[in-house]
Design a protein around this nucleic acid. Structure first.
Lengths: 114, 114
DNA sequence: CCTTTAGTTTGATGTTCGTCAAACAGTTTG
DNA sequence: CAAACTGTTTGACGAACATCAAACTAAAGG
């Protein structure tokens, strides 16, 4: 049987102030970029944030409660994805702009250079 | 003679993390919505934020230093506008999505209802 | 069972940040 | 010059928040 998603706001309950507050952290911004493709990801595969797992858990909860992500428990692991369609319907163009090449490059840039 | 703009980052120096951090405040989000048309506004005409003038000055500085706004001193007043073209060139679609009708409605909504 | 594994929750800590009040700076007007 | 006006800066305070460590929950494996 398929699991229930963890608690998250319905489409109509998603608020822009909460979304931008959730983005106001480098690590959460990196997570969003990593989820930009809209596909499910195992959280173990997310980029290394160099924080304790309790902190990462906190960030993932913040993103979920803001409405960015959808999380399913699968055994003792999790699947997570960006709610691309929901977010685009609620705030057209927002996620697209946020995960555009220019945006991704800017957020991930400091980590890449040699 | 025309005044110099107050210090602000050049287009290439504008960073997405700084932009979203600047948005992570209800009052600054309201200011951005009020400037959505891209035209110059006198700061005296901005929506009432119910904060002291020193606080408003702080918010305007935060927006300017993040790269959102351009400010010119004019006598003992100021003209300010969103750097729409610069921002759109740097992060295509971001400002448009941020100031879309859905976004404006969501940010301004709690203030409007009877 | 016991252990390991994956993630969450709780409590504590230090920092960031929004806010105000007061002092300050520059402009306009009397 | 003096007074009024518009906005900035500084310093202090409290709330919000990112972080960690430790305890906890639940699922797999031996």
């Amino acid at each position: 049987m398929v699991d229930q998603p963890l608690p998250m706001p319905a489409a109509a309950e998603i608020r822009l102030p909460e979304l931008v507050k959730a983005l106001a952290d480098q690590n959460r911004l990196k997570i969003v970029m990593a989820l930009a493709d809209g596909e499910f990801h195992h959280i173990i595969d997310l980029p290394d944030l160099d924080v304790q797992k309790s902190t990462q858990s906190h960030h993932l909860r913040t993103l979920r409660e803001a409405g960015f992500t959808e999380t399913y428990i699968e055994g003792r692991s999790c699947r997570i994805r960006l709610r691309v369609d929901t977010l685009d319907a609620r705030f057209p163009g927002f996620v697209e702009a946020l995960t555009s090449p220019a945006a991704r490059a800017d957020v991930l840039a400091p980590a890449l250079p040699a």
